[in-house]
């Protein structure tokens, strides 16, 4: 069903702001949860329970000097964080968050842009986002940034392969590349996390690597390196990179929910499906918590371990999963 363009625009605006809000409070949630797991409190000074901490951080970042290295190449240096942040946010446009509602005379879809190839779009945007990381490190004209961006580049490019292959099983099972269709297909069948358990596992692992989160946070291993590709960035430009990473994490969790965990559907019952965004958000929170939990539990991998794990284990497993799924689907039909 079509909707007037201005409804999409309003939805886009609301979604972007909601994602940014979620990002801001994910940082708080992360610091709080990590703190509790390490027998600390985490931030608790700004506002009750530290609830104003993200706002304080934002004000601090905006007011801070945006350092500009004299040798940096201006346009890519300034553009890199913008590209990363933009693509991270844009990917959320195709993730369905509800069934759609009839409000007054209009029908409002539960997704900002219903694109028939939305899954490919998400991966394409993710790939462009990587350019931000690479170009940013290169344009800083600093050897450490360049080395950092090369590490990032190598890691993200390797894990993107298994990430894309791991969802192939879902695509074959659902017979569609549209995220909306994939969610609809899960409404009356098992969520794809059960038949595609291997795919889900590979997706999660390579997703963690793709968003460079612990234990795959080598691009900015804070105990070992200064910062990696964003060494020469400060202030809100650095904040944009950080935002891109967190929003990527949120998008990836959203994608995992959409592909494997039934999207905005409530488990086993469909009477409450009009509350789709709520269920989506709750599932998102659980997945974000898993990301944080991972960070608190697992130590960082060595670089060669990371590479060989990605290429020698995840990739064959993902390929096998896709092949077996294809064979089973063909055999069943």
């Amino acid at each position: 069903m079509t909707e007037p363009w201005w409804i999409s625009a309003i939805k886009g605006f609301v979604i972007v702001n909601l994602v940014l809000l979620t990002f801001a409070y994910t940082t708080l949630l992360e610091r709080k949860a990590l703190g509790r797991m390490q027998l600390r409190y985490g931030p608790n000074r700004a506002g009750p329970y530290g609830l104003l901490q993200p706002i304080a951080d934002l004000v601090k970042l905006v007011r801070k000097e945006s350092f500009f290295p004299a040798a940096a190449i201006d346009v890519p240096y300034i553009l890199a964080p913008v590209v990363s942040a933009f693509t991270a946010l844009a990917a959320f446009a195709v993730i369905p968050f509800g069934n759609g509602w009839n409000i007054w005379r209009y029908h409002v879809n539960g997704v900002v842009a219903n694109v028939p190839i939305s899954l490919i779009l998400v991966f394409a945007l993710g790939s462009i986002g990587i350019y931000g990381f690479i170009v940013g490190g290169w344009a800083s004209e600093s050897k450490y940034s360049l080395l950092g961006s090369m590490r990032t580049c190598a890691q993200l490019v390797s894990y993107e392969v298994s990430l894309a292959l791991s969802v192939l099983g879902v695509v074959i099972t659902a017979g569609s590349l549209s995220l909306v269709d994939i969610v609809h297909n899960q409404a009356h069948s098992l969520w794809y996390v059960v038949p595609q358990a291997v795919g889900f596992l590979v997706f999660l692992i390579s997703g963690v690597a793709e968003t460079s989160r612990a234990p795959f946070d080598l691009p900015e291993a804070e105990q070992e390196l200064v910062a990696g590709y964003h060494t020469e960035y400060s202030g809100m430009r650095w904040g944009l990179f950080q935002m891109a990473e967190y929003v990527n994490m949120i998008t990836l969790s959203g994608l995992a929910i959409t592909l494997f965990l039934g999207g905005w559907h409530f488990p086993f019952a469909h009477g409450v499906d009009f509350l789709g965004p709520l269920w989506f958000f709750l599932k998102l929170l659980v997945l974000l918590f898993v990301f944080i939990w991972l960070r608190a539990t697992l130590p960082r991998l060595r670089y060669d371990q990371l590479m060989s794990f990605g290429w020698k284990i995840l990739l064959p497993v993902a390929t096998l999963n896709a092949l077996v799924t294809a064979l089973v689907v063909v055999w069943v039909n």
């Binding site: 027998l39 409190y41 539990t297 697992l298 284990i313």
Partner: peptide, 27 residues
């Protein structure tokens, strides 16, 4: 060696970190 040789112990680690949440912080 590619994978952690003790997958069970790795999973146990998740239990350990989760249990910490309910303890009183030392701060």
């Amino acid at each position: 060696l590619l994978v952690s040789p003790q997958p069970v112990d790795t999973l146990k680690g998740f239990g350990v970190t989760f249990k910490q949440i309910f303890k009183k912080p030392l701060t």
